[in-house]
Design a protein around this nucleic acid. Structure first.
Length: 427
RNA sequence: GGAGAGGUGGCUGAGUGGUCGAAAGCGCCGGUUUGCUAAAUCGGUGACCUGGUAACGGGUCCGCAGGUUCGAAUCCUGUCCUCUCCGCCA
């Protein structure tokens, strides 16, 4: 959520940003309503002040007649206040509804464009796209050969979009987690596991909408809990409502969670295999920092993501996400797209990680502030999130890039200590 | 799941209808004093919103949301959370 005062003072800027993001929002209307709301608030506060005055005088009243008169006066003022308050609240609801829909500002360097076609490639990983001396298989064929996945059983048990991992895929999942955790820990991240369910208010604070037809979120009936779509939710929520001392910042958290996504409306496109599934495991990085630190922090997180995939010897490119493809809370977002030789027609890039600087957009809703000694008041922290490793997609990239002509998968050196073997072969 | 207790400022903790945004202590900031460490002493010290160039005002906040009342930290209802005991359980 953007600061309301900021919106009022920067109508054109905010309106232009909405347009760049492909959103139809009437910022001017919000500003008009906010003006009316403020006037109304003044009225409410003035009535309140007078009513408080009267109430206090009742305690000091010397006789019954005077007391009765004052009480009547008090009743009248409170009624007037309630009426004004009601008017105010209607305006508040209207303003807030629009305010919530306004996306974060965009970093000046973010490419302007309607969708991911406008994304800008900013760099490549250390490893070149491999040319195969045979026709590379996709991860499903590799999985068949090596007995790594079972989608059929999963569809009987849970339906489309689920999977069983089997044999070395199980060990690979754990190895990838451990590998990514070590990189995060070395970079100063505190390791956590997080709940896989969270309160809806936390989801909303992070910028997810648990309700509605297009929701990506599974909710638990009869509770106000939802299954998390990412540990970003639980890591960001970790400090909800807290006021931190500036010396505590930056706070770096890395968390393992399962991620649950309904993928509503995503059927029919790129849904084969592990690429788009309803559940996967992810190691996520999250940072709370001072505003001046967040630009550099985004680069730091992106650097770690590169380290993860360079270490896995997987070719990738980094793209600076265009305005129309940015999520609401993000001010700037880098995606790592790994080369997936078995995907599409002869291989394509597929998104494997994402990192966003959300500036104070999430912190404002989650009420996460910090205080500087000697300074009056508080400021909102900046929050950033980034994938360390999303297991299912990393696994696709790994087996497809490292497949051998004999059908085995060669494990990159850095991952071997974690997996305990250097090659996956048929049983 | 059953029974009980409780949620107050950075912390501990008092406050059961009016002058309470809230005692006291700790912590923190500043002054004084004793040549240092430290102690004593005095003063200051919450957040959010809002009016005002400012000085300085106003409003809200005692887990959260409602209700009663002229007036609620205090009474009522709901809800969330914490603790204790019992039961069940990986």
């Amino acid at each position: 959520m953007l600061d309301r005062k900021f919106i009022v003072e920067n109508v054109d800027l905010v309106q232009r940003n909405c347009v760049h993001r492909g959103l139809q929002i009437d910022v001017a209307e919000l500003v008009r309503n906010e003006g009316l709301r403020r006037d109304k608030l003044q009225e409410v506060e003035e009535l309140n002040r007078r009513a408080n005055e009267v109430s206090k005088s009742i305690g000091r009243a010397t006789n019954d007649t005077e007391r009765e008169q004052r009480m009547e006066e008090g009743r009248r003022l409170r009624a007037a206040k309630d009426a004004a308050q009601q008017g105010h609240d209607l305006l508040e609801v209207a303003v807030l509804e629009t305010q919530r829909r306004i996306p974060n500002l965009s970093h000046p360097d973010v490419p302007v464009g309607r969708d991911d076609n406008a994304n800008l490639e900013v760099r490549r990983g250390q490893h070149e796209i491999r040319s195969f001396e045979f026709v590379p298989r996709d991860h499903l064929q590799i999985g068949d050969h090596l007995d790594l996945f079972d989608f059929e059983a999963a569809s009987r048990v849970s339906g489309h979009g689920f999977y069983y991992l089997r044999n070395d895929a199980v060990l690979l999942e754990l190895a990838l987690q451990r590998y990514a955790l070590d990189i995060a820990a070395t970079a100063g991240f505190t390791l956590t596991t997080t709940p896989d369910l969270a309160r809806n208010e936390i989801l909303e604070g992070i910028g997810f909408n648990p309700r509605g037809d297009e929701t990506q979120i599974y909710s638990v009936v009869g509770t106000d809990l939802s299954l998390v779509a990412t540990a970003e939710i639980t890591l960001g929520g970790y400090l909800a409502g807290q006021t931190l001392a500036v010396e505590q910042l930056p706070i770096r958290l890395a968390g393992i969670s399962h991620c649950f996504r309904t993928e509503a409306g995503a059927h029919g496109r790129e849904t084969r295999g592990l690429y788009r599934v309803h559940q996967f495991t992810k190691v996520e990085m999250f940072v709370f920092c001072e505003p001046e630190q967040s630009d550099a922090m985004l680069e730091e997180i992106c650097g770690l993501q590169c380290q993860v995939f360079d270490g896995l010897e997987i070719p990738y490119r980094v793209v600076d996400t265009a305005t129309g493809d940015l999520g609401g809370p993000a001010y700037r977002k880098y995606d790592l797209e790994a080369w997936m030789p078995g995907r599409g027609d002869g291989g394509t890039w597929g998104e494997v990680t994402s990192t966003s600087n959300c500036t104070d957009y999430q912190a404002r809703r989650l009420q996460i502030r910090f205080k500087k000694p000697g300074e009056k008041g508080t400021q909102f922290v900046h929050t950033l999130n980034g994938t360390a490793v999303a297991i299912s997609r990393a696994m696709i990239a790994l087996v497809e890039n490292h497949q051998q002509s004999d059908g085995s998968v060669l494990i990159p050196e850095k991952l071997r200590p974690y997996l305990g073997k250097d090659r996956i072969v048929p049983k």
